[in-house]
Simulated scan of single mutants.
Amino acid sequence: MNFSKDEKFLEVKDYTVSQEVFSLYYNRTYDLLQTDPMPAEENLGRYYQSENYISHTDGKRNIFERLYQSVKRIALRKKVDLLFRQNIVAGSILDIGCGTGDFLVEAKKRGWDATGFEPSEKARGLASKKEIKIVPQLCELPNHSFDVITLWHVLEHVPNLEEQISELYRLLKPEGKLIVAVPNYKSYDAIYYKEYWAAFDVPRHLWHFSQKSIASIFANFNFQVDELQPMLFDSFYVSLLSEEYKTGKKNWIKAFFIGLRSNVEARNSMEYSSLVYCLSKVRN
């Protein structure tokens, strides 16, 4: 696959950890943005070393983190509901980038045989305390092992897309479902906040996808997109962080209205702040 850097799209700062500035380059073939420079794989870990990276913690230190954890509980139930809507009886599920394991805990409660993979040692430690089965390496798993594989805001973090998608194809059963959630750089909140849009999250996010990106890239690996679903909470959360990056304050009220407008604008276009793609293998 040719992920050429056709033109510079934007310069974006890492507001979470390093304060370094990175460029986003546009690829016309896949309608894809790529972070440049991409940190070497062995150096990526240092960009996650922050207490502010709350997806790798169970933190409730302040009102923002408590709100995040409350919304997360609702979102977890909705994620498991989505699995059942894919017409698959609760079976085997692999969550790649499972973080602290809360999604798998919810899935396990509702009858799924749950397995997780998480590269972050800190998050993996929290997940293991919740009696979740965590595998050390995906390559150790046998072919066609899972009815469902999920990546909730993970694909944008993966250095080598081709290797990762090939591995997904290998691990998924022929009739299985692949669930991929990623931010959408064509959403209203992304266009409004531009370089301050929190979901660019450089350099942890190496890739930035559109609807065309996901459909085109996965088609190269014999996957097809069957369904799109919005992640409605994301526009509010991302707008809140973006306001802080832009102004130094969270500006709760303004962030709420930007998040709300983003969801309203997306009702026809489906250009929500984050999208869930439900994919399956193309049948020959």
Rank of each mutant, 00 (worst) to 15 (best):
M1C: 04
N2G: 06
D6E: 04
K8T: 00
L10E: 13
E11T: 13
E11P: 00
Y15E: 07
Q19I: 00
Q19A: 05
V21E: 06
F22G: 01
Y25H: 08
Y26T: 05
Y26P: 02
Y26L: 08
Y26E: 04
R28V: 02
T29Y: 06
Y30S: 02
L32W: 02
L33N: 00
M38F: 07
S50T: 15
S50Y: 11
E51R: 14
E51Y: 09
E51C: 03
N52T: 11
I54H: 09
S55T: 15
H56N: 15
T57Q: 11
G59W: 03
K60T: 15
N62Y: 09
S70V: 05
S70W: 13
K72S: 10
I74V: 13
K78F: 01
V80L: 03
D81N: 13
L82E: 10
R85N: 15
V89S: 14
I93S: 05
L94K: 02
I96D: 07
G97H: 07
G101D: 02
F103S: 06
E106K: 10
E106C: 07
E106V: 09
A107N: 11
A107Y: 07
R110V: 07
T115Q: 08
G116Y: 11
E118K: 08
P119A: 04
K122P: 01
A123E: 08
L126T: 02
K129S: 14
K133L: 12
I134P: 06
V135S: 00
Q137C: 06
Q137P: 00
L138T: 00
E140N: 15
L141N: 05
P142K: 10
N143H: 12
H144Q: 15
S145Y: 03
F146Q: 06
I149E: 06
L151R: 05
L155F: 14
E156I: 09
H157R: 12
H157P: 09
H157A: 12
N160G: 11
L161F: 03
L161C: 05
E163H: 12
I165T: 09
Y169P: 02
P174G: 09
P174T: 08
E175C: 03
G176S: 11
K177E: 14
L178V: 08
I179S: 13
D189M: 06
A190F: 00
Y193L: 05
E195N: 12
W197C: 06
W197R: 01
A198H: 09
A198E: 01
F200Q: 00
V202W: 00
P203F: 00
R204I: 04
W207G: 01
W207N: 02
W207M: 05
K212N: 12
K212I: 12
I214P: 02
A215G: 06
S216Y: 12
F218Q: 02
A219H: 13
N220W: 08
N220L: 15
M231A: 04
F233N: 02
D234W: 01
F236Q: 03
L240Y: 07
L240Q: 03
L241H: 07
L241S: 03
E243A: 10
E243S: 13
E244K: 15
E244V: 00
Y245A: 13
K246E: 12
G248Y: 04
K250I: 13
I253Y: 05
A255R: 12
A255I: 08
F256Q: 07
F256L: 14
I258R: 08
S262H: 08
A266L: 12
R267M: 14
N268Y: 09
S269G: 10
S280Q: 13
K281G: 04
R283C: 07
